[in-house]
Amino acid sequence: MEQLIEQLKSQIIEALNFEDMTPADIDADAPLFGEGLGLDSIDALELIMLLDREYGIKLSDPKSGKAIFQSVRTMAEYIQSNRTK
């Protein structure tokens, strides 16, 4: 799980163009939206694309997003249970 979290942090930094940031700067348990990384709605779309592109996960239920994208750790847990590649 920890390896997946670190990989996911790097993928998020690349997908969202956080050029000043390293994986160590991201707290795996911090909120992704609002506080913490302070992501916005366009970033949310990029994360949905990232799950599809890198892990073959298509989110069909919009309501599930709130729980999945709570933090990097909740994203990683969802990926581990649902990845198709």
């Binding site: 997908a15 366009i42 779309l45 694309m49």
Partner: peptide
């Protein structure tokens, strides 16, 4: 086919 929302805006 991964249209980038970040580029689209």
């Amino acid at each position: 086919y991964y249209p980038s929302p970040a580029l689209f805006v």
